[in-house]
């Protein structure tokens, strides 16, 4: 019994204090599609400012907005659409967002079918399993708008919570077709097919970055934000397939 109590006390204090790193870390909420860029620039930041750890919280923009609405503490937020950022701005949770990148849609085909599917017509006429993002996410909103413009039926498509989940399913042949971002096509190592003539690249989104209103590390947050607009940030963004604003 005594052992139980001691263990509980020790565990509780460790968990609550988070091993002491929480207070100095910079917390950055990042949309899934920016995963590689954010990881890269977080490392860059830690090299430039060795005293600060960057904690990345990577999720779909919708999930990040929800977490912020429910009071999650962040210093920097980067989302994949202006309308998602507007929800935070209307609640007074962020300060003056700024666009850091652009991205457009891409229709991709699993490695197995990459050779045999070449056009949107193939998608319309064959019984294929499609994966898209949930409608409430930036990539989902774009994907549904695109699909209705080309007469592609998404009723039996599986809706994934973020774009990386869609990408992973296509890469592993678990679905036949996915609607993702150009940046995903560039960063993927799989032998994906890419329907370049599908017209999906007409559908694009911009990535707003904002420092949060009640960040306790505003200076550091500004430094981190500045990374995205300097040379290193811009070359990282373009390397991973994003366009600059």
């Amino acid at each position: 019994m005594r052992l139980l109590l001691v263990t509980a006390t020790v565990l509780t204090s460790v968990v609550l204090n988070g091993c002491g790193s929480g207070s100095h870390a910079l917390r950055v909420f990042v949309a899934s599609s920016l995963t590689e860029v954010a990881q890269h620039l977080a490392e860059e930041y830690e090299t430039r400012y060795p005293n600060t750890d960057v904690e990345l919280n990577i999720a779909g923009s919708g999930a990040l907005v929800m977490q912020m609405q429910e009071g999650a503490e962040a210093d920097v937020v980067i989302l994949a659409s202006n309308s998602h950022m507007d929800q935070l701005r209307e609640l007074g949770l962020v300060l003056g967002p700024k666009g850091i990148a652009q991205n457009s849609l891409a229709v991709i085909v699993s490695p197995q079918l990459a050779e045999s599917i070449n056009s949107v017509d193939d998608l319309r006429h064959r019984d294929l399993q499609i994966a898209v993002c949930v409608k409430s996410s930036p990539c989902g909103a774009l994907a549904f708008a695109y699909a209705s413009s080309v007469g592609l039926n998404l009723a039996s498509a599986t809706r994934e919570s973020n774009v990386k989940a869609v990408l992973a399913k296509v890469e592993r042949d678990e679905v036949d077709v996915g609607i993702v971002y150009m940046s995903d096509v560039r960063s993927s190592r799989a032998q994906l097919g890419h329907l370049e003539t599908a017209g999906a690249d007409q559908y694009s989104t911009s990535y707003p970055l904002a420092v949060t209103a009640d960040s306790k590390n505003k200076r550091k947050a500004q430094d981190f934000a500045a990374l995205f607009t300097d040379e290193v940030g811009q070359s990282t963004l373009t390397r991973f397939g994003f366009q600059l604003p």
Partner: peptide, 9 residues
């Protein structure tokens, strides 16, 4: 099973 409204949702 994925997340297909009406089928697996």
């Amino acid at each position: 099973a994925g997340n297909v409204p009406g089928r697996t949702q």
